[in-house]
Amino acid sequence: MRVYKVPIILNEERKLFGGILSIRQLTYLLIGLFANYFIFKGFGVYGILPSLIITVFVLLLTFYKISKYDINFDKYIVLKFKYLLKQKTYLYKK
């Protein structure tokens, strides 16, 4: 009997929860859910606007993928933030 090695796909995340969500996506959704719960519990009706903003941001972090760079939105935010903090001009000193 022949045995074939199946290559592992390293470019994509493994969808563990129902074949729909990865661990990263589930984590973002749970954090957003808890944040919205505490905002509604604390502010009541006045928490609708902050809750809506958090929901949109969490959905972007969870599902949006930057097709130009082929990376997820959360990774893009981290890389952009590191780039903004990095020194961009190097002066030659003798």
Score class of each variant (00 low, 15 high):
residue 1 M to A: 13
residue 2 R to E: 13
residue 3 V to D: 11
residue 3 V to T: 10
residue 6 V to A: 06
residue 8 I to T: 10
residue 9 I to V: 00
residue 9 I to N: 02
residue 9 I to G: 00
residue 9 I to A: 00
residue 12 E to K: 09
residue 13 E to Q: 08
residue 14 R to E: 13
residue 14 R to C: 06
residue 15 K to W: 04
residue 15 K to N: 12
residue 16 L to A: 03
residue 16 L to T: 01
residue 16 L to V: 06
residue 18 G to Q: 13
residue 18 G to L: 07
residue 19 G to E: 12
residue 20 I to N: 14
residue 21 L to H: 03
residue 21 L to P: 09
residue 21 L to M: 07
residue 21 L to F: 13
residue 21 L to R: 07
residue 21 L to I: 00
residue 25 Q to V: 02
residue 25 Q to F: 04
residue 28 Y to Q: 05
residue 29 L to F: 04
residue 29 L to G: 01
residue 29 L to E: 01
residue 30 L to Y: 09
residue 31 I to A: 07
residue 31 I to K: 04
residue 31 I to T: 06
residue 31 I to L: 12
residue 32 G to V: 06
residue 32 G to W: 02
residue 33 L to F: 11
residue 33 L to A: 09
residue 34 F to E: 11
residue 35 A to W: 03
residue 36 N to R: 01
residue 36 N to S: 05
residue 37 Y to F: 13
residue 38 F to W: 04
residue 38 F to T: 08
residue 38 F to R: 01
residue 38 F to V: 09
residue 40 F to H: 02
residue 40 F to L: 01
residue 41 K to G: 08
residue 41 K to N: 11
residue 42 G to H: 09
residue 42 G to I: 01
residue 43 F to Y: 13
residue 45 V to T: 15
residue 46 Y to A: 14
residue 49 L to N: 15
residue 49 L to R: 14
residue 51 S to Q: 01
residue 53 I to K: 15
residue 54 I to Y: 01
residue 54 I to Q: 08
residue 56 V to I: 15
residue 58 V to R: 15
residue 60 L to R: 12
residue 60 L to F: 12
residue 63 F to E: 06
residue 63 F to N: 05
residue 64 Y to E: 04
residue 66 I to W: 12
residue 67 S to R: 10
residue 68 K to G: 10
residue 68 K to N: 13
residue 69 Y to E: 15
residue 69 Y to L: 12
residue 70 D to T: 09
residue 70 D to H: 11
residue 70 D to M: 03
residue 71 I to N: 05
residue 73 F to K: 06
residue 74 D to C: 10
residue 75 K to M: 04
residue 76 Y to E: 09
residue 76 Y to I: 03
residue 78 V to H: 03
residue 80 K to S: 12
residue 81 F to E: 02
residue 81 F to L: 13
residue 81 F to G: 02
residue 83 Y to T: 06
residue 84 L to Q: 09
residue 84 L to H: 10
residue 85 L to C: 08
residue 86 K to H: 11
residue 88 K to F: 02
residue 88 K to N: 05
residue 88 K to S: 05
residue 89 T to D: 04
residue 89 T to R: 11
residue 90 Y to W: 12
residue 90 Y to Q: 08
residue 91 L to T: 10
residue 91 L to S: 11
residue 92 Y to F: 13
residue 92 Y to A: 08
residue 93 K to I: 03
residue 93 K to N: 07
residue 93 K to T: 03
residue 94 K to Y: 06
